[in-house]
Structures are given as structure tokens and as C-alpha cells.
Nucleic acid binder design. Structure first.
Lengths: 150, 150
DNA sequence: CTCGATGCAAAGGTTTTGCACCAGG
DNA sequence: CCTGGTGCAAAACCTTTGCATCGAG
């Protein structure tokens, strides 16, 4: 499964005339393995370096994120106060409930919001990006350690 | 109206045992005058300094924001990729449609979302902050390829 | 070979923090 | 007065950029 995901991502890069370098391959493997996790650039950096077996420069990670975003492979959004988070764009569409207390994100199935988003588009002429949605608030127990917000 | 707002904010500070200093008063006046604008810290800083008639240090602004947030007077969220935005917490509840192309926010009436927010709370144990809502997407005037989402 | 991609280093914008001094109550 | 608040300066934090070099195709 992970290998298939990686190959597919590699194809997406090739289709855009981009080179498959070692750092890029490592990033793609990490993303494919992360499934629906929301990685920060820092986490992605650390994991990719581990996969590659050698250090990768942070700036390279950010440039790869930019390239992948333009290629349509990933999304990158700032949900709360902390760093931006990244995930593959072709996962099951979902939204994020972001707890401001602990920074934890809870996934919300698309259909919970689908009707709303549609009506906003017709009523307000605003096309909501269905995977970039974040609803900020507080989860019931906000004592958990956070990845995104201290 | 603005004066009343300012006094009320001053009372909120006093109630929390906080001192009414010149920079704080200036910030409160700016906030009261801003109505439902979504100020960045930088804008707040500039306006407060103007109101005070003398320079205020940026760090002071950030500390005031922190204090006001703890006192419950204001909210402070990061809607998109840019800096955080601030507004009073007791304005007419509304939500934000944030255009990623132009950064413009469109207000969305509360009742469009009220049912949804309620059902999220019961279904997911997540209390959405009804004034902190941001739906990221693209407004009609800017239906072009995005920097973030091609 | 050639151009795109990387590493390094430095700077960018936003926010936080340490410390000595100032001023509100 | 006396503690909380401020200004200043420096750093922390996340991210971007310039430039020389490297390596994929």
C-alpha cells in the first residue's frame, strides 16, 4: 500500500517534469506512510532524513513542500497558532476540528459539512476549499500533549 | 458607543486586578473603535501608538494582547498563512470566509452554521468557538489558480 | 552536459523573553 | 512605596531566499 502510494506520487512528480531526487523520494515515502496524519514541516524533515539515511536541509524540505503543493500532491495549511501542517491531497476528504487548548486536530467527515459548504457557495459566492477547513474551538479534554500548539 | 465600549473594556481589566496604563488604554480604544474589523498585531500597534500620541513597543502590544485574551476581552486567531488577527469577543457572533487569494474575509451569519456547530458538539465532543470560525477558500472575484492549492 | 535541485548561510516576518527602569494604585 | 507594566534588546520561531555546487536525465 505504502509502496503503491509512493509510486503514484513519483508519477505525479514526473508528470510535472520534476526530477526524482533522493530528498524528494524520501519525502514522498514519508508522506505515503503518514496516511492521514497532519505532519509539520519539522516532523516531515526529521522523518525524511531518517528514511534517506542522511541529513536533509530544512530549506530543501520547504522547497519540496512548495513543489508538491504546486503539483497538487499535498495540502499545507496553518490551522492554529503553530506551524503549518501537511498531508496528502487525495485522502478521503475531511475537515479539521482544531482544539486551541491542546492543538489536537480531530477529523470531521466531509458529509457533515457538505450541505453547508454547498449552500455557502450558492448563497455567498464563496468556494470553500473542502479539505482546508478548520473549525477552531475546544475539545472536551484538552490535557493532551500537542504537536502543533504548545 | 465607542466610549461606552472602552469603559466596559476598562472595567473588564479592573475586574481582573489589572492596571490601566496608557498603552493599555490606547489599545482598548483602538479595539473599541475597530468594531468587527480583524486587526493584526501590527495594525493594532500602529493605531495604538497613534492614539497614545507616542511610540509603544511591539512587545508591549503582544503582552497586552495576551492579557486581554486571558481576561476574555478579545480573541486572537490565525486564519490563514499570515499573522494572527484580533477582535473583540463580544461582537455579534459571526464566522469568517477567508479568501486565500486576496486575504479578504467575508462575514457569515451565525445561524447558517448554528445547527452544524451544535451537532458537532454532541457528535464529536468538540465545542466550536462560534466567533473563531474560519472557512478557507476562494471568493468569486479570485477564482484563479492558487498559490497553495493549484 | 545542462539545467534543475540541493546545501549552506543569512535574512525574513512574527512573536517571545530577560532585565532594568518606570509608573499606576 | 511596591509590585506590575513598560521599553529596549536580543533571541526564538518558522519560513524564505541568494548563491555556489552537485547530480538527475
Amino acid at each position: 500500500v505504502t509502496d503503491l502510494d509512493t509510486s503514484r506520487l513519483v508519477e505525479q512528480l514526473r508528470a510535472n517534469g520534476l526530477r526524482i531526487t533522493q530528498p524528494r523520494r524520501a519525502v514522498l515515502e514519508v508522506l505515503a506512510a503518514a496516511h492521514d496524519d497532519h505532519l509539520t514541516a519539522e516532523t516531515l524533515h526529521a522523518r525524511a532524513a531518517e528514511v534517506a539515511g542522511k541529513p536533509i536541509d530544512p530549506s530543501t524540505i520547504y522547497r519540496i513542500i512548495e513543489v508538491l503543493e504546486r503539483a497538487g500532491s499535498i495540502y499545507h495549511v496553518h490551522l492554529g497558532h503553530g506551524p503549518g501542517v501537511i498531508h496528502l491531497s487525495d485522502h478521503a476528504p475531511h475537515h479539521h476540528l482544531l482544539c486551541e487548548q491542546c492543538g489536537r486536530t480531530v477529523d470531521l467527515p466531509l458529509d457533515d459539512l457538505d450541505g453547508l459548504i454547498r449552500s455557502i457557495e450558492t448563497d455567498h459566492g464563496f468556494r470553500a476549499d473542502s479539505v482546508h477547513f478548520a473549525l477552531v474551538g475546544t475539545c472536551l479534554d484538552h490535557n493532551q500533549p500537542s504537536r502543533n500548539v504548545p
